[in-house]
Each structure stands twice: as C-alpha cells, then as structure tokens.
Design a protein around this nucleic acid. Structure first.
Lengths: 219, 219
DNA sequence: CCAAGTACTGACATTGTTGTCAATATAATT
DNA sequence: AATTATATTGACAACAATGTCAGTACTTGG
C-alpha cells in the first residue's frame, strides 16, 4: 500500500562549493585533528564526528580515508611512531659531535615530552594497542647502542674504563620513564608545588646535570 | 486502537535466589571490579555492563549505588586518591627512622607503580578529570616537606650544609615522574631491551643508588 | 509474623556513535 | 567538452551504552 514515495529525498539541491583535497592532504589534515583532540581531551575525545567538525568535513569522509575508526587509530599509531623515531634519531645524531651524552639525553627528553607525542603514546600503551608494534623495540635498542658508543669514546678519551652497558641502558630507561611521566603528570605536579615554566626548565637542567655527574663519576 | 495488552510482561516467574549485600559491600565490590578493568583494558574498558557482568550483577545495580557512570568515576578517583595518600604516608612515615631518604623514595616509587594506581591516575590525568582534585596538591607538598626535613637532619649530623629545598623538590619530582613513566611504559620498555623481572629490580636499585649518590654528594 | 525499607532485576526508552550507500561535485585525462 | 576517477556529502541503518521504572526479593525491626 504505502510502499512508494519513500525514495523522494530533497527536491531542492542548491549545490554548494566543496573543498576537494588530495587524498594525502586529507589524511594529513584528519590525523592532525585527531592528534590534537587526543592530546587535549584524552582518549574519550576521539570521536569521528568531532574530528570531522573540527576541520569542517563530514564524518564519512574520514571513514573513506581510513576504512574504520580502528584504521584511523592504527594510522595515528604509525605516524606517532615514525615521528618519534625521526625526532629521536636527529636529536641523537646530527651535528652535536662534541656535546656530551646528557645533553643528548636532554634532547631525547624534550623530543618525548614536547608536543603531544608522549601523551599520545601513553594512551596507546594504556589501551594496550601498541603491544604488537615493534618500532619501540628498535628505537630503544638504537638509542642505547648509540649512547654506549659515545660513552665508550668518551671513556677512552679521558682514560677511564668503559662503563657497563647496563648502566647506559638504565640511564636511557630512566630518561624515557621520566619523560613519559612528565608528559602525563608534569603539569599537574609542577603547579601542585608552585613551579612555573621556568621552574620546569630548571628541573630539566637539574636532571641533565644529575646524569652528567653520574656519567663522569661512575665507578 | 491497540493500546491495551502492553502491560503484560512475563507470566512465568520462577523466582530465583538473589544475593543481597550491604550497600557498602556492594560499592566496594563494584569499585574493585571497575578498577581492575581500568587497569587491564584502559579507559575504554570502563563499561557498566561489563563491570556488572564481571561480578554477576545487573548494570542498574551499579547505577543504584553510584547514581551515574560519572558518579562511579568520581568514587573511583576519590578512592584512588586516598589509597595513594595512605600508601605514601605510611611508606614515608612508619618505622624507618634510620633509613636514608633514597630508601624512602624507593618506597614512594613502589607505592606509585605497584598495583594499578599509577595507571589509574594516569588515565584520570589524561582525561583531565583529576584537575579540580586538590589531593595531589597536598600529597606532593607533604612529601617534599618530609624529605626536606630528613635531609636537613642528615646534613646536620654529617656536618654538611643544608641542601637547597628546590633540590629536594626536584628529587621528588624526578621520582614521581619516573614512577608514573614506569607504570605506563615500563613493561614495554623492559621487554623491548630484554630485561626480565629481575632486571627491573636492578633498575630500581640503580635508581635508588643514583639518588643516594646525589644525596650525599650535592655541593 | 508482619511491615517497612531497600538492594536488586528485567524490560524498555533514549541517546550517541560507527558504519553503509547512493548521489554529487570536482579534478585530471583524453 | 566529454569521460573517468574519486573525494565528499546527506540520509539512513545498526548497534551499543547509559539511564529510567515498575516490580521483586531479601533483611531488619517491631
């Protein structure tokens, strides 16, 4: 009986200007927006509709580029990982041939805690999603190796014995832990004890110095 | 009109044994289950139906005890905070009159990273829910004060000058950051570099020793 | 043993979010 | 200019999660 007249949609289609990006551009835009929301509002702020609204597109567009929400998350993980590795390696590698290692560790520290990278990765780890990802594996290994190399050079130059590799590993681990911790509780903690931005800077310097002392003075 | 015959529900009510707890017991049970799920599966694992299923009740029961999901979360925050403070203060206060401060810091470290407390708090911080809570405020302040006191005593006993309070603050901050970091990335990092449980223990000892050296050797 | 209070449940309402689909607009190519 | 490819959209479908409600069963106090 009343089966018909259901296909009629909207007779008036005024037609609008539509921004059309390249797939790559669109993906980048979406990932940026997603990352921002994640860093600002935490895990529960990752809703397709919100992200879409943030950049003025419709949410199916996101689905078009990433298949599913899960796909978006995966892409987010992948990008965060490569970004992290790049930042880390340049922080360790480029130019600073003469600087000591605690300086390098400081760079690693900043690479981790700056931007939302650490927060993002923290969430991924909290949700248990980054388990299968082996990138962390390689990163940590590379860093420790690089550090150990520098320490060996430094030790030879100053005539001291080459430090134990586990000691280097622990320095790197402490740095990573502290950096992640700062990314999460840093702001809270800082304002809890009345530290301003400059105080945080002093803290980082203090930490670098602590590592330096240890670097020089290890048995 | 077919308005009637809609009130008829289930004619057969076999009646079943029903477990009835005291309100307090029920609340504790629910909070435990919620905490467990949060620690295991992260933020997205906090669904009323799941929690209810875990302990064999219906999800409206949870709502009955906590008003709303938000109420449950609040209760979770409150309990985590008091638990944390209690653990911290006993770790700092009781009995260890002669132990040095890095030992105390070790206790704080473990109090934070043991159980799921740090993970739980991390999630709360990541979602920005613990902002208004002033407990962190007091905790951190108390700890730093207590530490500073011990350092002053220690300094006087060994004839050294009383160390700067900011130095103590930074030691506490580093410890907190590292503990939180370890709670989140610790396991990942450890297995990434091939550290077993014993290795993690060695790392903690190493860290305590590092703080000890600094404690003694500060200018 | 009766009554009152309340922990608890099943069914339903409501809302919000992901995902699907056909249609449309825009850029690139011929 | 016409054709092809695809980025984009609005409307709808499907589902999941919180919340509501009337009614049920257990405990306690008289």
């Amino acid at each position: 009986m009343s089966t018909a007249a259901k296909t009629a949609v909207n007779p008036a289609k005024p037609a609008g200007k539509r921004i059309r990006r390249t797939a790559e551009e669109a993906r980048r835009l979406i990932l940026d927006a997603a990352e921002k929301r994640l860093a600002q509002q935490g895990p529960e702020g990752l809703r397709l509709q919100d992200i879409a609204r943030d950049i003025g597109i419709s949410h199916p567009a996101i689905l078009h580029h990433f298949e599913s929400r899960e796909g978006l998350v995966r892409a987010l993980i992948a990008r965060a990982n490569t970004q992290l590795r790049d930042t880390m390696l340049t922080a360790l590698g480029g130019g600073h041939t003469n600087a000591d290692a605690s300086d390098h560790i400081g760079h690693v520290f900043e690479a981790l805690s700056d931007r939302g990278t650490a927060r993002l990765l923290s969430w991924l780890l909290l949700t248990g999603r980054a388990t299968e990802n082996s990138t962390t594996h390689n990163i940590m290994g590379e860093i420790v190796d690089a550090l150990q190399l520098r320490r060996a050079e430094y030790a030879q130059k100053t005539g001291k014995p080459t430090p134990d590799k586990e000691d280097t590993l622990f320095m790197a681990m402490l740095t990573a832990n502290a950096a992640f911790g700062e990314a999460i509780v840093g702001r809270q903690l800082a304002e809890a004890v009345g530290l301003d931005q400059d105080g945080i800077k002093r803290f980082r310097n203090w930490f670098a110095k602590l590592l330096n002392e240890h670097w020089d003075g290890v048995k």
